[in-house]
Design a protein around this nucleic acid. Structure first.
Lengths: 171, 171
DNA sequence: CAGAGCTGGTTCGGTGATTGAACTGATGGT
DNA sequence: ACCATCAGTTCAATCACCGAACCAGCTCTG
């Protein structure tokens, strides 16, 4: 969002959360991270976001402890951004909101399907597996794309195959 | 946020949802509506939001079908904004995000407590009642304020007493 | 009946965030 | 030496947000 960025007067958990992940693009960055996107260029290609904004958002998320910046090769020095435990626990938020949109917003096409890997069942309300009756964490979820994407970048193509959440997208 | 407002390239439910409720203030308006705030002046007093922005957000939410504008007195003509079914189903989103903030963000004080009215149990993950084992809709939730608010407006004071969600705040 | 007050907005100039395009810098491949 | 890749940074123009002031319909009070 273009937000002035704080909600100072609101002494409320929700407002605190929104100061962090309520900024424009931020929750989509988290979603991509859940999908296994880790590199600056991959976020950029998939989200089509101005590089300056992406850099700023990643830095915020690292500062807040949602992402961790981690060197994956020494030379040339390259870093990747990986979700921390705290970041992974945003999965229910992302899932719940996405599910709401699917049920209530008209133009929500491209419905990806999320299954509990242990049993293959599609997740129900609140990211709970209706068979196992447990809340399924992101790492135990497989995503299969619904109708395929209209995007052509390499990240979108990689995500067009069934894919375990948090697993790095194949290059 | 100052958000540009669309995420055109993202053929994704989440992006659709964020185009609507991802704008600055919007989710706080929904939260207040869940708390039973209905009138323009009450939203304004409680959120401390510029009136122009509030007017625009309310209009968006009405257009999208999240809120309904309803005349509550003929003369002088006065309207109130009430959550539709679609709007009420944002409760799990609000609860999940609020709970995440409470668990993971440092300065999340003022933790309100949410109980299942039928049995008095505090809600667990995903807005599920741990005793009854059902997902509790907003109308069956009672909120009690945790540590009391720092705000002095009449809406905050009204919400400082235990209160059933969706029930209009007493004037 | 004049004037003040309440509710629910709209208008407006100034500030700050976002955008896209161009540029940098370190490194590696040929 | 030359080109390419990755991960950013810089910059001018645009857009959204901000707060304060203004407005309109109606009612209440003196």
């Amino acid at each position: 969002m273009a937000l002035g960025k704080d909600y100072e007067g609101q002494d409320c958990n929700l407002a605190r959360a929104l100061e962090l992940i309520g900024e424009r693009w931020t929750l989509l960055v988290v979603r991509d991270a859940l999908y296994g996107v880790r590199r600056f260029g991959d976020f950029q290609a998939h989200l089509d976001i101005p590089r300056a904004v992406l850099a700023e958002r990643l830095q915020h998320l690292v500062q807040a402890g949602v992402l961790e910046k981690r060197r994956y090769q020494p030379s040339p020095p390259r870093d990747e951004y990986v979700l921390t435990g705290m970041g992974q626990e945003l999965w229910p938020v992302v899932f719940t909101l996405s599910r709401w949109a699917k049920r209530h917003l008209p133009h929500a096409h491209s419905d990806r399907i999320y299954r509990h890997i242990a049993c293959g069942t599609e997740l129900g309300a609140m990211a709970v597996c209706p068979v196992c009756e447990v809340a399924v964490p992101a790492g135990d979820v497989e995503m299969s794309p619904g109708s395929g994407t209209a995007r052509l970048d390499h990240v979108s193509r990689a995500l067009d195959r069934p894919h375990r959440l948090l697993q790095p997208v194949a290059e």
